[in-house]
């Protein structure tokens, strides 16, 4: 049952990653439209930059869990690479526990501030007033998802869940 639930959530987190990718397209289109509008018609998109930033926040944070699931986050295996299976499992257990705790703390604090900023209607003011609080909410959601993913990795390291087969090697940035 637990395995089923985790699999379901992980699939959802991957979908979020796909959605994050598509936001690249949206960011691009807004900026291109803004440039064309300003350059040729003297009509930039009002709040275009602010909108691009809002979408970029989604692009950044909604994809974090998927990036972790697909092992896109670099780590150094200089020492761990030489560890025998036993100690390696212990190291992995500690690493995933610390990751879950730290990310959980970050997520919790950002939820707090997202809540406060939503109540106060936080907005920026360049040429027009543009709401910032939606970015805060998206960001907090992204970090909660990342915490979940770290937690699942922790459950695997703790032996509660079976290891996933290695599908893909580490990403290349």
């Amino acid at each position: 049952m637990l395995i089923r639930i985790v699999e379901f959530i992980e699939r959802f987190l991957l979908r979020l990653g796909v959605a994050s990718g598509f936001l690249t397209l949206l960011t691009m289109l807004i900026i291109v439209a803004d440039v064309v509008g300003r350059g040729f018609f003297n009509k930039p998109i009002p709040g275009g930059n602010e909108l691009a930033v809002l979408i970029m926040v989604g692009l950044i944070f909604l994809g974090m869990a998927a990036a972790q699931q697909k092992k896109h986050n670099f780590s150094i295996d200089l020492v761990t690479g030489f560890l025998p299976p036993g100690p390696l499992r212990v190291a992995n257990f500690i690493a995933t526990a610390v990751s879950t705790a730290v990310c959980g703390l970050l997520a919790w604090l950002t939820i707090d501030i997202a809540h406060a900023m939503t109540l106060s209607g936080e907005s920026s003011y360049g040429v027009i007033a543009f709401p910032i609080w939606p970015s805060r909410i998206i960001l907090a959601i992204g970090l909660v998802c990342l915490t979940l993913q770290f937690f699942f990795d922790f459950l695997r390291a703790a032996g509660v869940l079976p290891e996933k087969p290695d599908e893909e090697e580490k990403a290349s940035i």
Binding site: G21, G63, A66
Partner: peptide, 9 residues
């Protein structure tokens, strides 16, 4: 998307 997320983390 995922590369961006990883870099920003």
């Amino acid at each position: 998307g995922t590369a961006t997320s990883a870099i920003f983390l």
